[in-house]
Deep mutational scan, measured.
Amino acid sequence: YHADPSLVSFLTGLGCPNCIEYFTSQGLQSIYHLQNLTIEDLGALKIPEQYRMTIWRGLQDLK
């Protein structure tokens, strides 16, 4: 799967570019796929713990 530029820029902007593959490997290719994820969902996606809160907060800021 290839990540949408919106996803790449979002995660890169948060300092988490190495997390892109965790999302794309589950078929979550764009920022729209991420918008309703919970902190528990990020854990289920195996996002490293040190990035989960950062990503979750970033998603809240998009709403």
Rank of each mutant, 00 (worst) to 15 (best):
I55Q: 02
G58M: 00
D41K: 07
T12C: 03
L28Q: 09
I55F: 01
K46I: 03
D41G: 11
P17M: 10
L7N: 00
Y51I: 05
G15T: 02
C16I: 15
Q26G: 09
V8E: 15
I47C: 05
I31G: 04
L28E: 04
Q60A: 13
D4N: 05
Y51D: 07
V8D: 15
S6N: 07
W56F: 14
S30K: 09
T12E: 14
Y51S: 06
T38N: 06
L34D: 01
F10R: 00
V8T: 14
I55G: 00
P5L: 14
P5D: 15
C16S: 02
Q29T: 13
S30E: 13
G58E: 11
I55M: 04
S6G: 15
L59R: 01
Y51F: 09
P48D: 08
D41H: 04
W56N: 05
D41V: 01
M53A: 09
H33R: 08
Y32T: 11
D41E: 14
S25Y: 03
P17K: 14
Q26E: 11
L11H: 01
L7E: 02
S9R: 13
G43M: 12
I31R: 08
I31V: 13
L14M: 05
E49I: 03
G13E: 13
T12K: 14
C19I: 08
S9L: 06
S30P: 01
G43D: 07
N36V: 10
N18I: 11
L59G: 02
E21V: 10
C16Y: 07
E21I: 05
L42Q: 02
L11V: 03
Q35W: 04
Q50D: 06
Y51Q: 06
T12Y: 09
L62M: 12
T24I: 07
W56M: 08
P48Y: 00
K46S: 09
L45P: 01
G58L: 00
L28V: 10
R57F: 15
S30T: 14
N18D: 13
D61V: 06
T24K: 10
E21W: 07
I31N: 07
Q50L: 09
P5C: 15
N36W: 07
E40T: 07
P5Q: 10
R52Y: 14
H33Y: 06
L45N: 04
G27T: 05
L45K: 04
S30D: 11
N36D: 14
N36R: 12
F10A: 02
H33Q: 13
T54P: 07
Y51G: 03
L59T: 05
N36F: 04
H2R: 15
Q50K: 13
A44V: 13
L11C: 06
C16W: 01
P48H: 02
H33N: 09
P17R: 10
G15D: 07
F23G: 00
G15S: 05
D41R: 08
E21G: 12
D61S: 09
W56A: 11
K46Q: 12
Q29I: 15
D61P: 07
K46R: 13
I31M: 11
K46W: 03
G58F: 01
H33L: 05
G15W: 01
T54G: 07
L28R: 08
I20Q: 07
I31T: 10
A44C: 12
L42N: 01
F10H: 00
L62N: 13
L7Y: 02
E40C: 12
C16R: 02
S25M: 08
F10I: 02
Q35V: 13
P48S: 05
P48N: 03
I47F: 03
L28K: 11
T12G: 14
L42R: 01
Y1H: 07
E40W: 07
I20T: 10
L59M: 09
S30I: 00
W56P: 00
T38Y: 02
Y51C: 07
G13M: 07
T38S: 12
T24S: 10
I20V: 11
P48V: 00
W56I: 14
V8M: 15
E49F: 03
S30Y: 10
Y22K: 09
T54A: 09
S6E: 14
Y1W: 03
H2G: 07
L45Q: 02
L59H: 01
Y1K: 05
Y32A: 11
G43R: 10
Q50C: 14
I39W: 04
H2V: 10
P5Y: 15
C19G: 02
T24V: 07
G15A: 06
N36H: 12
Q50P: 05
N18M: 05
L42S: 01
I20A: 08
W56Y: 12
M53C: 07
N36G: 11
E49T: 09
L14E: 02
I55V: 09
H2I: 15
V8C: 11
N18Q: 09
Q60N: 14
W56D: 04
G13K: 14
S9Q: 14
G27R: 10
L7R: 00
P17Q: 14
Y51P: 08
G58N: 03
G13R: 11
Q60R: 12
M53K: 09
N36Q: 12
L28C: 12
L59V: 13
H33I: 04
T38F: 02
H33F: 03
L28M: 13
I55N: 02
L7T: 05
L42A: 02
G43E: 13
I47E: 00
R57E: 08
T54R: 12
S25F: 04
S30C: 08
T38L: 05
T38H: 08
W56T: 14
M53W: 09
T54K: 13
Y32H: 14
P48M: 00
D61Y: 05
S9K: 10
A3E: 15
E40K: 05
P5W: 12
K63T: 15
P17I: 06
I31C: 10
W56G: 06
T24C: 06
S25D: 07
Q26A: 14
S30V: 02
L42I: 04
H2M: 15
L37H: 08
Q50G: 14
L34W: 05
R52S: 08
G58Q: 06
I31D: 03
Q60V: 09
Y22T: 09
A3V: 15
P5G: 15
S9T: 08
E49D: 14
I55A: 00
I55P: 00
Q26L: 04
Y22P: 07
A44H: 10
M53G: 09
F23M: 03
A3W: 15
L42Y: 10
Q29H: 14
Q26R: 11
L14P: 00
E49N: 14
C16D: 00
S9D: 06
L14Q: 03
R52H: 13
C19N: 02
Q29N: 06
L7S: 01
T12M: 12
L14F: 02
L11W: 00
